Structure formats: C-alpha cells, structure tokens
Amino acid sequence: MIRHLVLFKLNDGVARDEPRVIAGVTAFERLGGQIPEIEFWECAWNISDRPIAYDFAINAAVAGPAALQLYLDHPAHQAGVALWREFATWVIADYEF
C-alpha cells in the first residue's frame, strides 16, 4: 500500500470562503468516490493556527505504484489540481506502509 499525503497552503490574500476555494475543496472531497484506485480517502481543513501550519490536507491510500499513477493521471484528479493551482501551493509525501 502507498499512503499519499498532500498539504496545501493558500496563497497570501486567499480566504477559505472564496467561491474558487470552495470549488477546489468540493472537487477534492468527491475524488474518493470517483477514482476506483483509491482505497482510503479523507481531506479536510487544518484546525491548527500555528504559523508553520498548512491550510488543507489530503490523506489517501492506494494499492501500489501503478494505482498511484492511475490516480494521479485520472481526469477528476487533474481537474481538481487545476483548480487548486490557481490559489494554493502544496507539498506531498508518498510512502509505502
């Protein structure tokens, strides 16, 4: 299994309640039910207000490298990434467990 973690940081001046941010969150919330390769899916806003904290997180699991690539290439994932690219940056970690 591979754990896929993503931490998003909203760009300066971007608020969580902006329509484009809401659209991005909604797109990612739906991914768990749209991409068959996803075996575990959760995403949510961070509740920490520490200065080093990121704003939004995805925690997902897939069966292996091939499933991860299918997830990454899936049109629904690519559409969500395109939305987030307009208002945030992110870091990822993929590890086997």
Rank of each mutant, 00 (worst) to 15 (best):
I2Q: 03
R3M: 15
R3I: 10
R3F: 15
H4S: 06
H4P: 11
V6K: 10
L7C: 12
L7V: 12
F8H: 04
D12L: 10
G13C: 03
A15E: 04
D17C: 07
I22T: 13
V25M: 05
T26F: 14
E29C: 09
R30C: 07
G32L: 05
Q34L: 15
I35S: 02
P36F: 01
P36C: 09
I38W: 02
E39S: 09
E39P: 02
F40V: 15
W41T: 06
W41D: 05
E42Y: 07
E42D: 10
E42R: 11
C43K: 04
W45P: 00
W45L: 09
I47L: 10
S48N: 02
D49Q: 14
D55W: 04
I58D: 07
A61W: 04
V62T: 02
V62G: 01
G64V: 14
A67Q: 11
L68T: 08
L68E: 06
Q69P: 08
D73R: 08
P75D: 05
H77R: 11
Q78Y: 09
A79K: 03
G80D: 00
G80S: 11
G80K: 03
V81L: 12
A82Y: 01
A82F: 04
L83Y: 05
L83C: 07
E86I: 13
E86M: 08
F87V: 00
F87C: 00
F87Y: 04
A88T: 10
T89G: 09
V91C: 12
D94G: 06
Y95R: 01
Y95G: 09
